[in-house]
Design a protein around this nucleic acid. Structure first.
Lengths: 136, 136
DNA sequence: GGGCATTGCTTGACATACTTATCAAACGTG
DNA sequence: CACGTTTGATAAGTATGTCAAGCAATGCCC
């Protein structure tokens, strides 16, 4: 049912990406010698849905993706990169001496871990942006 | 208009991450001097939904996340990191650095005025509402 | 030949992401 | 003050992700 074959509308590229992602997941699962149900038990995701994801019928949410990567012993980066979701950006920023503000944020007791991360992210993105960015 | 940052909702880690992600997106958008509707036009995502994402009310899908990253000139990875996707590689913080974060931000020569204001805004929004909440 | 467990897959119901239309407040103009 | 515009936020609806339950096929034991 509801297969996207007869849609008629513009074929969004996500179909292809989903196919690749699903195939990759399936390959990894079989490598690990897991059945759908076993993997379902590991990920707390229904075998039904896993099946659909592996066949590229659905776009899994971040939560699901993470659970899958976790169960397969992969990093989430590997999963997405394999599927072509992340644009690889060889853009490493070695933190040289810009430690003043960063250190303050890191040691600020008023921030929760999540907040700390977010704030550091904002700050770093500010600094990185000035160093020059490859236009695409 | 409630619109207060602190709703008193359940403190699931899920929520914290979403809040961080939303705050980050909002900061970036304002840095780029975009309104919600302008950004909506760029991302093809409704301003309404963008508003909800920025306030941490929803967990955006990969597609949406990517569109946002694209519009803001960020890499998908940067956004993904805030979305709780990457495991935080906690860096060590040199002791003795504990100081006034606000002051550090203010005196940071690497920040422009606009960035300074944005960062301070995020920081203040974080620590707002937790004042005087020490009992437990 | 008949059972029973295990495999991947489909179906129908629900939860959540996402959209279109609309709102109230803040801005400026005459 | 009336008017139009722009802002962020809300409501109700649509699309899509996700699950629990069940089906056809395969393999094993009798």
């Amino acid at each position: 049912m509801a297969s996207a074959s007869n849609d008629g509308t513009a074929p969004d590229p996500w179909h292809a990406q989903l196919g690749a992602l699903g195939a990759f997941i399936r390959a990894q699962r079989q490598l690990a010698d897991l059945s759908l149900r076993e993997m379902a038990a590991l990920t707390r995701i229904s075998n039904a849905y896993l099946s659909q994801v592996e066949r590229g019928l659905h776009q899994p949410s971040l939560t699901v993706l993470r659970a899958i990567a976790d169960a397969l012993g992969l990093t989430t980066d590997q999963l997405l990169a394999k599927a072509g979701w992340t644009r690889a950006v060889a853009d490493d920023v070695p933190p040289g001496q810009q430690a003043n503000t960063e250190a303050s944020i890191r040691s600020d007791p008023r921030l929760t871990e999540a907040q700390r991360e977010a704030l550091l992210g904002v700050y770093r993105s500010f600094i990185e942006g000035r160093s020059g960015r490859s236009g695409g």
